[in-house]
């Protein structure tokens, strides 16, 4: 039995019983934590709206040790990130980011760098940078942080050193033309896209957000979504949501 305290972001929730909620947090000091927030669905709850998706706060929880779920005692809002919820594209991209964090990490597995990346990305989504770019920058770095960095220096199948002509992107990284031919799941990638991927990974965050990379952004977005889907064993839910809401505005069709 222990009392814990940490800064944390709300990354999901679902209703429990009459008026409670099970809330998933990504915390700085404990990684992913799931807990019960009693009576939080009441209109006048002591959590008073604090447990909305994307909210950053200071969480106090009690771990009884008898259940996977902790008891959420307090959550004091540090930053609500409410601007992220005010348009569908921002909301969709922020949800993709949060889905990656929720589904690529295990409970109580601490990754301070991932936590910092999450907060930084939410912050960027409140600013002028197009939301799809923020998600792509997040995705490139999140895979790296979690040890899933795609291999871009050699064919992941036969080991042939890159550069080679007509590269493709597949499971785990770049694939040469001969190996790609045997696997239907590959997407051809322009060399410019592979270069852009490297830049987004290694440049300063602020640079990566604004660097002009043209349609490589879409290609990297699609590749990242495919990578994440492969790692979690099913398509991401938020990519479907983004496709659905974009049908209203065919011009903003960027991935993920």
């Amino acid at each position: 039995m222990a009392l814990g305290k940490s800064a944390a972001v709300v990354i999901g929730s679902f209703p429990l019983g009459e008026s409670d909620r099970v809330v998933t947090f990504y915390s700085r000091d404990f990684g992913k934590i799931r807990g019960v927030a009693k009576a939080s669905r009441r209109i006048r709850s002591r959590f008073a709206g604090a447990l909305e998706l994307f909210t950053l706060g200071e969480m106090v929880f009690f771990d009884t040790g008898r259940s996977e779920l902790v008891r959420i005692d307090h959550f004091d809002v540090l930053h609500p990130f409410d601007r992220v919820r005010r348009d569908l594209e921002r909301l969709g991209q922020a949800s993709w980011i949060v889905e990656c964090v929720a589904r690529l990490t295990a409970e109580h597995d601490r990754h301070v760098a991932l936590y910092a990346l999450l907060v930084r990305s939410l912050r960027a989504l409140e600013g002028p940078v197009p939301p799809a770019r923020v998600a792509v920058c997040f995705g490139v770095r999140a895979l790296e942080t979690l040890g899933h960095r795609p291999r871009l220096d050699a064919c992941t199948v036969c080991g042939r050193a890159y550069p080679f002509p007509r590269p493709a992107l597949g499971a785990g990284g770049v694939v040469c033309e001969a190996c790609a031919r045997e696997d239907a799941g590959m997407v051809t990638a322009r060399p410019a896209t592979l270069a852009a991927f490297e830049w987004l990974r290694s440049e300063r965050w602020e640079e990566a957000l604004v660097m002009p990379i043209g349609r490589s952004e879409n290609e990297i977005g699609a590749f990242l979504d495919a990578q994440v889907s492969r790692l979690i064993g099913q398509p991401t839910r938020t990519a479907k949501f983004l496709r659905d809401v974009r049908r209203l505005e065919p011009t903003s069709g960027v991935s993920p």
Binding site: G12, L53, L91, G92, S95, W96, V98, E99, A102, R237, T238, K240, F241, L242, R243, D244, V245
Partner: peptide, 9 residues
Amino acid sequence: LSPLDGVGP
């Protein structure tokens, strides 16, 4: 609509 549950229009 719920992005995280994949609920679309």
